[in-house]
Nucleic acid binder design. Structure first.
Length: 473
RNA sequence: GCGCCCUUCGUCUAUCGGUUAGGACGACAGCCUUUCACGUUGUAAAGACGGGUUCGACUCCCGUAGGGCGCACCA
């Protein structure tokens, strides 16, 4: 009988929730759900300079949008500083830590010297064994962890396997700053222990920290959590995620019109797999998610595949749900708020009818919105000289050319118009010669085919409706 | 510079010593459709390189090359 699983997502609030963080959160969440455990949320705000409330809000909003819920309240790491200090003192008392009086300048010099001499850049242990009586006056010391100098520290990682660090390569890290504030590695260990975290799932960029943290756990006599370090996500060009592409906050993906479910599915497949399964529900992800199936190599972010997946999700949604998703998306879209203000019951009805046709050709909510633009076009549509000329010349070919001119929706052309006209004529049993007026009335109210709308309306406006007989015949 | 990690089609990945190396996205071609899209069928496309171990290596070991991460009184 194993203990309940407790995972945690621990972002530092120095920016938005980026895509790598979102995936880490997803993995923590999926594993907690899979095991019937909990996922805690801890805000790592010990860096008072760089942490902001706006960033915290952005992270919580991003997770909420992605549907990643956490158990209990989000915990502020900074609020536990007293506790971290207490543990630092305990370490000191146990002889696992010591005061170091080196100034930042001295440390910089030490690093520069090591670099110049091409030696490893490490703290040299100046104060490790010096007597407290040597302490210079007026210098506030930091507390350093006295890490073992021989032997090795082993991380048994679910994704990385058994990773061995020689202790001689790990120097004595600062655990308490001279101003009395704890540093990251101490805080993390204390919090994870105090919060009962059983499984740590985070990016490989923390692998070295895992070794140092393990040493602290050992020094305190605490059980080391189960570790999983997931490979990083790179940009499309293989280089590190930069502002230019992938390093966007999840809210940017929302603005690009991606569905949370699609993004979850896509992110899950980056670094994790379940045989040949590509498209799966979040329920299936939870059911299948095992840490052992996380890969070791970094993945590139591929927009084309995300779009394809998103299109799949859009198509399979039922019309009403999709319409709701579109409406919920509008506030975040360019021009969206304006459109939102114009949606009344009538428009909603038209949109609802149009969804079936629209979703076939939209990969994102942005495309869906643009595809529906014809419903929002101000009538009569403005016509340029070219359009007038085309109408004047007439002919089915004219209609064909006219469509792109008249609406922002260039896809639906004369063939659709012709088919609709004929079908309507047949259904109503009316002769084509008498079609123009009734056709217009009928189609204006019910059709969801964009250019039919526009063309007929515009043709009517310019009193060219009569020509449709000729055009069709 | 030191430490750790990674390397299968362009991309995401399957394979856990024996397969015609599979799937998906993308690409290309065909079908469907008098547009676009959807759908559908097919094609091209991969084990970085060099050594071992083994009857047999993509798979295990060593080395080389390339890439990533870490090396703060940041997290």
């Amino acid at each position: 009988m194993s203990l309940p699983v407790v995972t945690r997502f621990a972002p530092s609030p120095t920016g938005y929730l980026h895509i790598g963080g979102a995936r880490t959160a997803l993995f923590n969440w999926a594993y907690a759900k899979h095991t019937g455990g909990k996922m805690l949320l801890r805000i790592e705000d010990t860096d008072r300079e760089r942490s902001t409330d706006a960033a915290i809000d952005a992270i919580l909003a991003g997770m909420t949008w992605l549907g990643l819920t956490w158990d209990g309240d989000a915990v502020s790491q900074h609020a536990q500083a007293f506790r971290h200090r207490e543990v630092a003192e305990q370490l000191l008392a146990k002889g696992h830590a010591y005061h170091c009086y080196c100034s930042p300048q001295e440390l910089d010099a030490m690093r520069a010297k090591a670099e110049a001499e091409k030696r490893p850049i490490r703290y040299d242990g100046t104060w490790r064994d010096r007597a407290p009586s040597d302490a210079p006056d007026g210098v506030k010391p930091v507390i350093r962890f006295k890490s073992p100098q021989t032997g090795e520290t082993v991380i048994d990682d679910n994704a990385q396997g058994r990773v061995v660090f020689a202790n001689k390569d790990l120097d004595d890290l600062i655990i308490l700053r001279s101003d009395g504030n704890p540093t990251y590695n101490l805080s993390v260990v204390v919090d994870d222990h105090d919060m009962g975290v059983s499984h740590i799932i985070r990016g490989v960029d923390h692998l070295t920290n895992a070794a140092r943290q393990t040493q602290i756990y050992v020094a305190m006599g605490w059980k080391v959590p189960n570790m999983t370090h997931v490979p990083l996500i790179h940009g499309p060009d293989g280089a590190k995620l930069s502002k230019r592409h992938g390093a966007l906050g999840v809210e940017a993906y929302r603005a690009m019109g991606y569905l949370p479910a699609a993004l979850r599915n896509y992110l899950a497949r980056l670094g994790w797999s379940h045989g040949d399964d590509e498209i799966f529900s979040t329920e299936q992800l939870v059911e299948w998610f095992e840490l052992a199936n996380i890969g070791k190599s970094p993945a590139r972010f591929d927009y084309a595949k995300l779009e394809n997946l998103n299109g799949h999700y859009i198509r399979q949604m039922d019309d009403e749900a999709l319409l709701n998703a579109l409406i919920a998306f509008l506030p975040f879209a360019e021009d969206g708020p304006a459109l939102l203000g114009r949606i009344d019951d009538t428009k909603r009805g038209q949109l609802s009818k149009a969804m079936a046709g629209l979703k076939e050709r939209a990969k994102t909510l942005v495309e869906l919105k643009n595809g529906a633009a014809y419903l929002f076009a101000i009538r009569p549509l403005a016509m340029d000289e070219k359009a007038r000329q085309i109408i004047a010349e007439g002919g089915i070919a004219a209609l064909q050319e006219l469509v792109p001119v008249l609406s922002g929706c260039v896809d639906w052309t004369a063939s659709a118009i012709e088919a609709a006209v004929k079908a309507h004529a047949e259904a109503k049993g009316i002769k084509l010669g008498k079609l123009a007026q009734p056709l217009r009335a009928s189609l204006t109210g019910t059709s969801t085919s964009p250019p039919i709308f526009d063309v007929l309306e515009v043709l009517g406006r310019v009193e060219a409706m009569g020509r449709i007989n000729d055009l069709v015949n």
